[in-house]
Write a protein that binds this DNA or RNA. Structure first.
Length: 276
DNA sequence: TGTTATGTTGCCAT
DNA sequence: TATGGCAACATAAC
């Protein structure tokens, strides 16, 4: 599922190709709701004629910067795929929206489960998005101290806390499980039970698993594809995600991994390496 | 063939 | 305010 490394992989693929392109059209295929509250006419009025001046990422959100200081926000949610494809190429499966560009290629948004959104955003809306999200985990704003400060009063399981995008932006089920394993922390341990040293270890583990994910161009465990339809390779680097269900042995100690449910998500961990 | 798991965000209840 | 549960949706796997 698209988390920070997957969204960053899409961003890096798209950036050099779409900067300077002009948006020509907004064309929903079979699901107008992909535009959120916007009608096709409203979205077209805001976007058509705008030049794309940059492409940023905030947490799991892709943010296209436009020449009028407004933007276009894309969230892939569970199964969204954003691709740059030749206008003449066959439409992708689950095609929901085309953003027509000048030149021969268009941006195409496909999404099996229709959770993803492509939404125009005013300058104010972009600021609002930034304010509601926690620090970028690979930026200087995210330190062991800031992590400790934001978790040490939380009474929820640390896994739930890390999935809170207001604590740190961009973690999802895969990278949280991997980071907790790497840090040797039980996913059900309460945030408030962790000391500064554990927070420091967790901080380093989060950065490690995210950097690895980006280096391997994302985790294509199921539907994730980059901007050109390619799969990532990070699924081969995962130590615990998805492996608790069948009790596969821990790569570190051999103990059968376990699966529990936390925050409504399947959670895999090693009961030996991640004691309560 | 029916049931269940999948996992993100927002909304609602506590 | 913090936390947990569930809906939105389509499909694969059991």
């Amino acid at each position: 599922m698209p988390e920070l490394p997957e969204v960053e992989t899409v961003r890096r693929g798209l950036l050099p190709e779409i900067t300077g392109r002009t948006i020509q059209s907004v064309e929903p295929i079979d699901f107008p709701g992909v535009l959120g509250e916007y009608s096709v006419d409203e979205a077209t009025a805001r976007l058509a004629g705008r030049v794309i001046t940059g492409l940023d990422r905030r947490g799991k959100y892709l943010v296209f910067a436009l020449d009028d200081d407004a933007g276009l926000i894309v969230h892939l949610r569970m199964t969204g795929v954003l691709m740059l494809e030749a206008r003449t190429s066959p439409a992708p499966r689950f095609h929901r929206l085309t953003i027509g560009l000048d030149g021969e290629r268009d941006l195409r948004f496909a999404d099996q489960r229709k959770f993803g959104r492509v939404i125009p955003a005013s300058r104010e809306a972009l600021i609002g998005l930034d304010l509601k999200l926690g620090p970028e985990p690979l930026s200087d704003a995210f330190t062991a101290d800031t992590l400790y400060a934001s978790i040490h009063r939380r009474k929820a399981p640390i896994k739930s806390v890390l999935l809170d995008q207001g604590v740190v932006a961009g973690l999802g089920n895969i990278y949280v499980d991997e980071a907790l394993f790497r840090a040797g922390i039980h996913p059900a341990a309460l945030g408030a039970s962790l000391g500064p040293e554990q927070a420091a270890g967790l901080h380093a583990a989060i950065q490690d698993v995210l950097r690895s994910g980006i280096e391997h161009r994302g985790t294509s465990f199921s539907s994730f594809r980059d901007a050109y339809g390619g799969k990532g390779a990070n699924q081969h680097q995962l130590a615990v995600y998805g492996r608790g269900r069948s009790g596969l042995p821990c790569v570190r100690c051999g103990t059968p991994l376990m699966r529990i449910v936390l925050a409504g998500r399947g959670t895999s961990f090693c009961p030996t390496c991640q004691p309560m």
